[in-house]
Design a protein around this nucleic acid. Structure first.
Length: 748
DNA sequence: GAGTTTGAAACT
DNA sequence: CAGTTTCAAACTC
């Protein structure tokens, strides 16, 4: 990454050093002059340009992306890497030179592997420039860097770089320490070429970079990945062909190079860099990269094809259980199945707003971790695409999305107790419901869904909206319409991607939460002092509340009811009899039971919390930190088994994220993210959840600062003032959804 | 399957 | 911000 300027600078420095004056000064100073070091790359937080919005159209993204990831076949070109601003090394020479730098202030990571004998060389750079434009005015920088360009002949599977900002609270990496590692490795042995290729392809996961400022968005991802269980270091090391290493040892004994390698390994171990399963980063990135409706590379190999699904945030649902075991497993899987990434589910992200940051859930991320290698995609996102096949067209993709829920993987995950995105869980629920509902006229659609696909998909029947309005369930869910849809004049197709994105953007400008999950759920209803949630009995609530006048909130016309949640004070409904909970907080009526009274004194609201819990069948899922479904992902499943299950079609846009930890789930900071998606990203996956998403984040608190009657949600400008470190009090939140996208404006 | 009802979304 | 219109899902027959 030497830039001409740098070169000039260095040359000028050299002259300066050679000057008599300099020599004189040196003679006076006890400090020994040192030859100036080039700073190959210095990524200063300040230097990071604001990140573009996540929702940038894929085209744009791809364009930008190419910059970062480089795969060149030119061995001769020295690769520079420096994390600390120092020129680390360049060597073409035989031997292995591994340098690792920890530079707290620098967020740069460049990794290069030089394989002289191999054509393949991969350099990963994490420039500040990584950007996604979501187009939203406020978007914070959400660094997303993904490069999947592989020019080299060798198999370049995927590379992803994730800027990692260390969260002090997080122990993933040493506190406050950013790790930038530069590896230059030359492989002397030609015979090992294949091995290196493998290594390279796998390494992306291992690479982690911190970006002090902008990359916070990745933090969550990384942190999540950092969960105990697997270590990156070991993984990394393991990646290296053991034979080669041994040979190296033999050859380089005493050279110090070996020591360096070991040192690096130790560092990784010490830093507990873990959970990077091969492909995970890539997935993450992919997810992020994929803006809603944007095409995501399902795999590097396959990148190039477009996914049907809109990945807004792609946060995707990830498995909730991120427990180490799962991570370990995933890593194992990855290793065992190098080629598994073919079917990735990229999802998430968007929503996210995202979908799009969404990284999904970064659940997506999680999911990805697990799924990537396994080769199975998790249904996290609506967008999950199983399709590796290039042929997968829109429909295929769409179908794949639908199917995602039904995939074996999911099933397995469920068995394992892994929580998939809520989608998945909901899907299950729906599935059950469907079972009961066979009679419903509805029939084909439902049956169809059931049959195949796990109901995640939506099929619309739009006549006039061109499927470009929220009336359209597909659009609202962030997915492209597919064949099963009965829509007319549909523009919600990949071929109209630009239109879709523009429309989406417009809608979001009007209502940033338009594509966010409508139901916000928390696993733990524990009320916080001073929090409105106290009055909110249910663990989940419709973010905006309903406005039912005639249905008494007992029919699916009511979004609250449809979403399987009780009404809240946010609702403007009349004659509320919502079986899941009255808006006044009255106890939930047993299904089919009548609520006692309509608007009870708010003081009584607390009492019902317990009852609401009943509705939360997903709790177990919530336990998992996982995923957040991004908007798109959402999936249509009701949170709970609705009493009316018959016909239950998944609720349109209810995405509840249970405790699922979405990508953004973890937020220690507690700041809300609706408005600032980036923050969400920053948040740790596991424990943190944006307040909005949290249960405690009652609409009242956040979104609904507006008048109770206001239908539209204004973007929360406010930060949900909770203190960043705010006590989470053990509450798991779930964010159901993440705002479609992260805000684009840089934090500072 | 057609028609009606309903309430969210969009518009004014 | 409130009122009205548009829209498509939900529902009924």
């Amino acid at each position: 990454m030497d830039t001409p300027e740098k070169t000039l600078t260095s040359s000028s420095l050299s002259k300066f050093e050679d000057s008599p004056v300099f020599n004189y000064i040196n003679s006076l100073s006890p400090i020994k002059p040192v030859k100036s070091v080039h700073v190959t790359q210095t990524f200063n937080p300040l230097s990071f340009a604001s990140l573009p919005s996540i929702f940038t159209s894929p085209h744009v993204s791809s364009h930008k992306e190419s910059r970062f990831l480089k795969c060149s076949t030119d061995p001769s070109k020295p690769e520079l890497s420096s994390a600390d601003g120092t020129k680390v090394s360049t060597n073409e020479e035989a031997g292995v030179n591994v340098q690792e730098i920890f530079d707290p202030g620098v967020s740069l990571g460049e990794v290069s592997f030089q394989l002289p004998n191999q054509q393949s060389r991969i350099a990963i750079e994490l420039p500040q420039t990584l950007k996604y434009d979501c187009g939203s005015p406020n978007c914070d920088p959400t660094p997303c860097v993904i490069e999947t360009n592989c020019v080299s002949e060798s198999t370049c599977t995927s590379l992803a770089i994730v800027p990692f900002v260390q969260d002090a609270s997080q122990k993933g990496f040493s506190d406050g320490v950013e790790v930038a590692a530069t590896f230059q490795i030359e492989q002397k042995r030609e015979t090992t070429g294949s091995e290196w290729e493998c290594l390279i392809s796998d390494t992306p996961d291992l690479l982690i970079f911190n970006s002090p400022n902008g990359s916070e968005a990745f933090r969550g991802v990384i942190q999540k990945s950092l969960e105990p269980g697997t270590r990156c270091g070991p993984t990394l090391i393991s990646q290296f062909p053991q034979d080669d290493i041994n040979e190296y040892k033999d050859q380089n004994e005493g050279t110090g190079e070996l020591d360096e390698i070991n040192h690096v390994n130790e560092i990784f171990k010490d830093n507990n860099v873990t959970n990077f399963v091969p492909g995970s980063l890539t997935d993450y990135i992919d997810t992020r990269m994929s803006a809603p409706y944007s095409m995501k590379p399902s795999s590097i190999l396959h990148h190039g094809f477009r996914r049907r699904c809109l990945d807004f945030e792609m946060l995707a649902s990830r498995k909730k259980s991120l427990d180490g075991s799962s991570n370990t497993n995933s890593s194992v899987e990855n290793k065992s199945e190098p080629g598994g990434d073919s079917s990735r589910c990229i999802v998430p992200g968007i929503g996210l707003h995202l979908n799009a940051l969404a990284i999904a859930s970064r659940d997506n991320t999680n999911t990805k971790f697990e799924t990537l290698l396994s080769g199975t995609q998790k249904p996290i996102l609506p967008c999950s695409t199983t399709s590796n096949s290039p042929t997968a067209g829109q429909e295929t993709a769409h179908e794949s999305l639908l199917a995602s829920g039904s995939t074996e993987r999911e099933t397995d995950d469920v068995k394992n107790g892994v929580q998939l995105a809520e989608d998945a869980s909901q899907a299950s629920t729906n599935f059950v419901n469907e079972e009961f509902n066979q009679n419903s006229p509805k029939k084909k659609r439902r049956r169809f869904e059931r049959a195949g696909e796990s109901e995640a998909c939506k099929r619309c029947n739009c006549k006039k909206s061109k499927c470009l309005k929220l009336y359209c369930e597909c659009f609202a869910a962030g997915v492209y319409c597919i064949e099963p849809c009965s829509c007319q004049d549909c523009f919600n197709k990949p071929i109209h991607e630009d239109t879709v994105l523009a429309t989406r953007k417009q809608i979001e400008s009007r209502n940033p939460l338009a594509f966010a999950p409508k139901v916000i759920r928390t696993s733990d209803p524990i009320p916080e002092v001073g929090d409105d949630s106290i009055t909110t009995p249910a663990s989940a609530r419709h973010k905006r509340g309903c406005n039912c006048k005639k249905s008494n909130c007992l029919k699916k016309y009511c979004e609250c009811f449809q979403g399987g949640v009780g009404c809240s004070i946010n609702c403007r409904c009349e004659g509320c009899k919502n079986a899941f909970g009255l808006k006044n907080g009255s106890p939930i009526v047993e299904a089919g039971g009548e609520p006692e009274g309509e608007e009870t004194d708010p003081s009584d609201m607390n009492a019902t919390n317990t009852n609401f819990e009943k509705t939360d069948i997903l709790n177990t899922e919530e336990q998992n930190p996982a995923a957040l479904p991004t908007t798109p992902v959402q999936l249509c499943r009701p949170l709970v088994q609705l009493p009316f299950s018959s016909k239950s079609k998944p609720p349109r846009s209810f995405i509840t994220i249970g405790s699922s930890s979405g990508l953004y789930t973890g937020n220690k900071y507690g700041k809300p993210n609706i408005i600032r998606p980036q923050r969400i990203i920053e948040k740790r996956f596991q424990d943190e959840t944006p307040e909005i998403l949290r249960g405690n984040f009652s609409p009242e608190n956040g979104i609904k600062t507006l008048s109770p009657n206001s239908k539209r949600i204004s973007p929360p400008q406010c930060e949900f003032g909770s203190t960043p470190g705010g006590a989470r009090s053990g509450r798991k939140l779930i964010l159901q959804s993440i705002p479609s996208f992260p805000s684009l404006t840089p934090k500072h």
